[in-house]
C-alpha cells in the first residue's frame, strides 16, 4: 500500500476511535450522573425515621416504612412462586426435553414472555388474578403477576447454569447406577445452584423496581399501615415514587429524592450481590 494512503487510513482510524470512545461515554456518563444525582440529593433525606415511620400529611411528610415493607413482602412472595416453576422448566429443557416441536414451542413461549411489555402483564394480572380469580387488588395478585414477569429471567439463567455443568458428571452418575432423576438431583443441580441464585437475584431486582405490573394489581395509593395478609393491598416503593412525583403537588423534593434513593439502593445492591456471587463462584469453581 502506498505510504500516503496508509497514513490517511491511520488518520481516519484515529478519528473513528475517538468517536467510538465518545459514544461509549455518552452511555456511561448519564448512568453515573443519574446514580450520582439521586445519591447526593437523596442521601440527605434518608434517616432512620424516614425508613421506619408511616407517611403523614397526605404523604408530604413522614417516612416510607409501609412502602419498603410492601416491596419486600411483594418480592419475597414473587420468588416463592417463580423459583420452583422457573427451575423446573429449566430442568425440563436441559435434562429431559428432546428436540421436537413441543420443546421449540416452549422456547418460543419463553422468548415471547421476556418481550411482553410490563404494562401488559399488569393488564393480564388484573384480568386473571384480580377479577377472574377474585383475589382483588392484593399482594397475592401482584406477586403472581410479577412472578410470571420474571419467569423468563429465572428460566434463562437456570438453563445456562445447568448447561455449564459438564456432561461427564451426568455420565459418571449414570454409570454409578443412578437413575435419570437421581443424576439430575445429585450430580447436576447442586453444581448449578450458584448460577441459579445469580439469575434469581437479578430477577428479584427487576421485580423490586417494576411499577407497571403492580399498578392495578396490588398497589395502594396511600395506606399508612402494613398489610394484614396476602389478600390485602400494600404500598410499594416504585409506585410510591410515581405517586409522590406526579399525583401530589407541593411535596418537598427531599421526599421524592429520598424515596428514589432507597429504591435505587435496593435494586442496585441486588444487582451487585448477583455480580459478586457470580465472580466468587467462577473463581472457586473446581471443574
Amino acid at each position: 500500500m502506498a505510504r500516503p494512503a496508509w497514513q490517511r487510513a491511520l488518520g481516519v482510524q484515529r478519528v473513528a476511535f475517538v468517536l467510538l470512545f465518545l459514544s461509549t461515554l455518552l452511555i456511561v456518563i448519564p448512568a453515573v450522573a443519574i446514580i450520582g444525582t439521586i445519591t447526593v440529593r437523596g442521601m440527605g433525606a434518608v434517616s432512620w425515621e424516614f425508613l421506619t415511620t408511616m407517611p403523614t400529611k397526605g404523604m408530604r411528610a413522614g417516612g416510607i416504612f409501609p412502602a419498603i415493607v410492601g416491596t419486600l413482602e411483594l418480592v419475597s412472595l414473587t420468588v416463592v412462586f417463580a423459583l420452583p416453576i422457573g427451575i423446573a422448566t429449566a430442568i425440563y429443557l436441559t435434562e429431559y426435553a428432546t428436540d421436537n416441536w413441543l420443546t421449540r414451542l416452549v422456547r418460543l413461549a419463553i422468548v415471547n414472555l421476556s418481550g411482553v411489555p410490563s404494562v401488559v402483564y399488569g393488564l393480564f394480572g388484573l384480568g386473571l388474578f384480580v377479577m377472574f380469580l377474585g383475589f382483588g387488588t392484593s399482594l397475592l395478585a401482584g406477586a403472581l403477576t410479577l412472578a410470571i414477569m420474571i419467569l423468563p429471567v429465572i428460566i434463562t439463567a437456570s438453563e445456562e447454569a445447568l448447561r455449564s455443568v459438564p456432561k461427564s458428571f451426568r455420565e459418571i452418575s449414570l454409570s454409578l447406577g443412578a437413575s435419570h432423576w437421581q443424576t439430575v438431583r445429585h450430580a447436576v443441580l447442586p453444581f448449578a445452584i450458584p448460577g441459579i441464585m445469580t439469575g434469581t437475584i437479578l430477577g428479584i431486582g427487576r421485580a423490586a423496581g417494576e411499577t407497571a405490573p403492580i399498578l392495578f394489581t396490588v398497589a395502594a395509593f396511600y395506606l399508612p399501615r402494613l398489610p394484614d395478609s396476602i389478600f390485602d393491598q400494600a404500598m410499594a416503593l416504585p409506585y410510591h415514587l410515581y405517586v409522590i412525583s406526579t399525583q401530589i403537588p407541593n411535596i418537598p423534593a427531599s421526599q421524592r429524592y429520598g424515596t428514589a434513593f432507597v429504591l435505587l439502593v435496593l435494586v442496585l445492591s441486588l444487582n451487585l450481590a448477583a455480580v459478586i456471587l457470580r465472580a466468587r463462584f467462577r473463581r472457586r469453581r473446581q471443574w
Partner: peptide, 8 residues
C-alpha cells in the same frame, strides 16, 4: 465413593 451406594 459413597455416591453409588447411597443412591442405591
Amino acid at each position: 465413593i459413597l455416591y453409588g451406594p447411597r443412591l442405591r
